[in-house]
Measured scan of single mutants.
Amino acid sequence: MFYPNSPQTSPQLTQIPYGQQYAMMQRQIQQPYHPFATTEPQARLYPYHYQGPIQQEQGGFITQQSTAASPQYVQMRVTPVDQSIMSGYPNQTANGSSSSSFNYNIHPQQQQQQQQQQQQLRHHAMPVGSVPLQDDRYRKQLIVNYLAPDVTSTDLHELFSRFGELDGARIIYDKQTNMSKGYGFVYFCHAEDAKEAVERMSGYEFHGKWLKVGYSTNPLNIVPSNSSPYVHAGSRGAAG
């Protein structure tokens, strides 16, 4: 039997160049792979992502010199942007860049009308829970959420009447099932009393439920100042 490094198959040491006398086997001759043993700084910083320098080929596509990437890492192929796409944008300079302001050559009167329309939209648009300043009635009506099913309009009136005089209180019921929808409205005579009720009743436990109280901004629920107070009856038909 002959071994790869046996004296019968191995040459004389004098015939082997210096430095390879003890590297006779194939696994010894093959050098191990060192990912950080390279002179390129990109490979030292990113050993798993770097795959060699990027070269520009004919046709405008950018390719990489090395083989496919590892399945664990996804390499994105980048193509140059066609400058003709950006030619339609206004205020574009000769080098292809555009300024931040756009001039669509709008007539001054049209621009003024658009600004007025935007101001009107901001004036009428009102986020949930906010209180408008032009109508004091919005500051007097509250919406009470997360009410228990057994709470009546009379219970709601008695709960909030300790903060001040009320114009009314009612629970909203479903017309088909005649069941409470879980929320109601309270109408105060003074805005200061309503503000105190919002601050003190939010998070209050009532009939096993934690109440959420806020201003009601729905104009359909506003009680006119010259109208008669609501009837605080315990029956659902009268309260709904």
Rank of each mutant, 00 (worst) to 15 (best):
Y3R: 10
P4V: 12
N5H: 10
S6D: 06
Q8Y: 14
P11C: 09
Q12Y: 11
T14R: 06
T14A: 05
P17Q: 13
G19W: 15
Q20P: 11
Q20A: 03
M25T: 03
R27N: 06
I29N: 11
Y33D: 11
Y33N: 07
H34E: 06
H34I: 05
F36K: 05
A37C: 10
A37K: 03
T39R: 06
E40M: 06
P41I: 11
A43G: 05
L45K: 06
L45G: 04
P47T: 14
H49T: 10
H49P: 11
Y50G: 08
Q51C: 12
P53V: 14
I54V: 06
I54W: 10
Q55K: 03
Q56T: 14
G60H: 06
G60S: 07
F61N: 02
T63G: 11
T63I: 15
Q64A: 10
Q64Y: 09
Q65K: 05
Q65I: 13
A68C: 14
S70F: 15
P71M: 07
Q72D: 08
V74L: 10
P80L: 09
V81H: 08
D82L: 15
D82A: 12
M86H: 07
G88H: 05
Y89K: 02
N91F: 14
Q92E: 12
T93Q: 10
A94E: 05
N95Q: 04
S97R: 10
S97F: 15
S98E: 11
F102M: 09
N103V: 10
I106Q: 14
I106Y: 10
H107R: 08
H107C: 06
Q109N: 13
Q113N: 12
Q114P: 08
Q115Y: 14
Q115T: 06
Q115R: 09
Q118Y: 09
Q119Y: 14
Q120Y: 13
Q120N: 12
H123E: 03
H123P: 09
P127V: 14
S130V: 08
V131L: 14
P132W: 03
L133G: 08
Q134W: 10
D136F: 06
R137A: 08
Y138W: 04
L142D: 01
I143Q: 00
N145M: 01
N145G: 00
L147W: 02
L147Q: 01
A148H: 12
P149I: 04
D150T: 08
D150Y: 13
V151W: 02
S153R: 15
H157L: 05
E158G: 09
E158V: 09
L159D: 04
F160T: 03
F160D: 02
S161A: 10
R162P: 13
R162K: 10
L166R: 07
R170P: 01
I171S: 02
Y173K: 06
Y173T: 07
K175I: 10
Q176W: 14
T177A: 03
N178D: 14
N178R: 12
S180A: 13
G182D: 03
G182F: 03
G182S: 07
F185C: 00
F185S: 00
A191P: 14
A191L: 05
D193S: 07
K195R: 10
E196C: 07
E196D: 09
R200F: 10
R200W: 02
F206E: 01
F206K: 00
H207P: 01
W210F: 06
W210M: 02
L211E: 01
L211Q: 00
L211R: 01
Y215V: 01
S216N: 00
S216R: 00
N218W: 00
P219L: 00
L220G: 02
L220E: 00
N221I: 13
N221V: 06
P224F: 11
N226H: 06
S228M: 11
Y230A: 04
Y230T: 09
Y230F: 13
S235Y: 07
R236I: 05
G237V: 12
A238K: 03
G240I: 14
